[in-house]
Amino acid sequence: MLVDFELVERARAGDDEAFSQIVGAYRKRVLGTIARLIGRPEDVEDVGQQVFMRLYLSLNQLRSPEVFEPWLYRLTANAAYDYLRRQRRRAESRLADLSEQQVVMADAAAGFQRLEEEHERARVRELVQSLLSSVSEEDRILLLLKEVEGLSLKELEKIYHVNENALKVRLFRARQRVLKALAAKQSSSAASKATGRG
């Protein structure tokens, strides 16, 4: 816990100052999780603000301060899920624009070395995002919480209120789909390389 239980209790009782302190303590972690879940840096703050707004409105539903962190993760996962759903509805893939935009930003901010690094990071982000498009939004979030955020099955159980075995099955299936997408991507790039050589 980044804050003590007493602060959570005070926020639950309607102390706005206590709530602001909680936001201050958790915002960086929450924004980092959102950044990895949605993969679009420019929208991270908006989704993060949604998370804390929902936290404020739902604090009275929190059973006890001990479950505060799983609760916050749950709200974060829900907000990311809503965002991804909205993005899918818009049916537009702006990943290419994103990487270009980041490259331009990096160019302005630093020199060639930094530009190269940023370019590589953008490439990794794009690759992972394209692999994750092979699974549903729910599975994508679950997979990222496990594989990238490093949450244990016990922690995921507390967040999702689903038993460990069900989570294992879902994670296994989602991982298999991503592996399949990765294999397909590699074979297609191998084929295009071979065509290029030929």
Binding site: K28, G32, R121, V124, R125, L127, V128, L131, V148
Partner: peptide, 12 residues
């Protein structure tokens, strides 16, 4: 790849 992704998306 997961590790690389984590490094590519640091906490903003």
């Amino acid at each position: 790849l997961w590790e690389a992704y984590r490094r590519a998306c640091p906490d903003p």
